[in-house]
Design a protein around this nucleic acid. Structure first.
Lengths: 298, 298
DNA sequence: CCTTATAGTTCTAATATTTGAAACAGTAAG
DNA sequence: CTTACTGTTTCAAATATTAGAACTATAAGG
């Protein structure tokens, strides 16, 4: 019982005035068309066509039904094509969740660029460091830093972030610039970034691992704030490169113990629900981000 | 591929928020529901629901599609129920073709009665003696007198008509009232009713058949007109009883050679296309006519 | 008027689709 | 950490649909 196909068949038979012709149009045999019509009439309990052996005339009820059918068929085709087109075209809205600092520093310009390429794609960006249930909150895509555990999501690595240990020249002048991890443990204080580990691990020149823990004089979940504090000489920070790069460049901050940190690399992932059918706009954005990060890292 | 069922399933899943519940509602198993959704999404090439293993959230596209679906389902149900009800209820229009004289004389009062019983049933009556292609011209029903050959139609005998040979007393006084068919052949003239045969057949007292042909001084395709002419003494008429009964009653016409005509009975049939599903109103009318003629003939 | 071609219906074997049941995978709640 | 529950997948069995031929009846053409 395929109501829609029955309706379609009925409409075409009325239009063409011939079961045989419709069978040809629809690439089937006349018996199939005949049976569909009978089926429909039986279900409705109404004759739609008054038949002689060779011709048929539409009944009153048939006429009424015909009008309904035409409209319904039109609406179904609209319903299907509207969303299919929308999803296949580079337009519509992308809901995106990004970490605050990385988002502002690194992603923001890329999104602007992407938007220039595809002006019909609108963004709805949530800058937030909280954990987000992608599927449940209706996000198309999220950017996450570091490890993820949600296994029903798909992750694509975009780039890496270098963690850099640094402090201001004034601070270092006052507390002494350490040459070894051990040196850091003597009298230094840190400004603690939100989800950072309590202790820092270093790879020594001999190849061993050393874990150093120093007191935190300031905690915050915002890297830029801590970076400002470090520039003001409040302590040592372990910061993603994109946050402190500028301060290092201008020598407001100096790198401490370069290349000695273990696991100083964080991965940045684009993660998205494992939808079988992803809107084209989302696919495009992911591809764009992958491409951009690839070239900018060269 | 049953699009409508897919849409229905999708809507119910969105409403209920659970595939399992919908499976129960629809008296099937969850695997069927799950497969229908996947099928629909594949065909559209779009994710309608973003799934985790235990829950799902509707996507943007899903939301759009949902609205369409709800409207379409509503319209389909309207389309089907509207005509089903209309055809099953005692309302609507009956297109009826009836012979002119018989229609006016015998049918007209019955139709009025029927209309009083079922005031919602409208009539569209074509009083016409021409041959009508029932099916092709969209009639629900026709009343026909005598034989019919259209085998794709169904006929139901309603009543019989008695043909009566008569003339006015004045005419008979002038030309002589015949006692035998042979007597009629001597100097009598007839007023010829449209499709009547050229010669009249009589059953003689000895049991034989006699065929008499007399000149026609007037031809017409309207019985009432010929009846008036006969009353005016213009000639002999062979008329259906319902046309001349009143004139005979009032002795404006006298019966000639009573009970001697062969085949003086005509059958009246209700004929209708052999639709498998006839509107209830038409069924009712046929039943009513059969019933009324049965009682009136007692 | 008869013959032939054609339209639609019905029947049946073959084919395709859909279902139901069970196994499976993953998550939430206790 | 276990249990209960949700949704997905798989596959044999049930169901529905189709193609093709035979059949009925009409229209058209000689």
């Amino acid at each position: 019982m395929n109501q829609l196909e029955e309706m379609q068949t009925f409409v075409r038979v009325v239009d063409a005035g011939s079961i045989t012709k419709v069978a040809e149009q629809m690439n089937t045999v006349k018996s199939a068309i005949s049976r569909r019509l009978s089926e429909l009439e039986s279900r409705l309990g109404v004759s739609l066509l008054t038949r002689t052996t060779r011709t048929h005339t539409i009944t009153d009820a048939g006429l009424t039904f015909y009008d309904h059918c035409v409209r319904i068929i039109e609406e179904v085709s609209q319903a299907e094509s509207s969303i299919s087109n929308k999803e296949k075209a580079l337009e519509g809205r992308i809901r995106l969740a990004v970490p605050l600092s990385f988002g502002l520093a690194k992603l923001s310009p890329l999104l602007q660029q992407f938007n220039n390429l595809h002006p019909k794609i609108k963004f709805d960006v949530d800058f937030n460091d909280r954990h987000i249930e992608l599927a449940e909150e209706g996000f198309d895509l999220a950017i996450r830093i570091a490890k993820l555990k949600d296994s029903s999501l798909i992750a694509k690595r975009l780039t890496t972030i270098q963690l850099i240990l640094c402090a201001s020249p004034a601070y270092l002048a006052k507390h002494g610039a350490p040459n070894t991890p051990q040196g850091l443990a003597n009298g230094h204080v840190k400004l603690n970034y939100h989800s950072a580990p309590d202790s820092w691990k270093f790879t020594t020149k001999s190849g061993g691992t050393e874990s150093i823990s120093i007191p935190s004089v300031m905690n915050a979940n915002n890297g830029d704030f801590l970076c400002q504090a470090a520039i003001a000489g409040k302590g040592v920070i372990l910061m993603p490169d994109f946050i402190c790069a500028e301060a290092i460049e201008s020598e407001q901050l100096n790198i401490i113990l370069p290349n000695q940190l273990t696991n100083s690399l964080l991965n940045v992932y684009a993660i998205y629900p494992q939808n079988k059918h992803q809107p084209q706009r989302v696919k495009s954005l992911i591809a764009f981000l992958v491409e951009q990060f690839k070239t900018s890292n060269k």
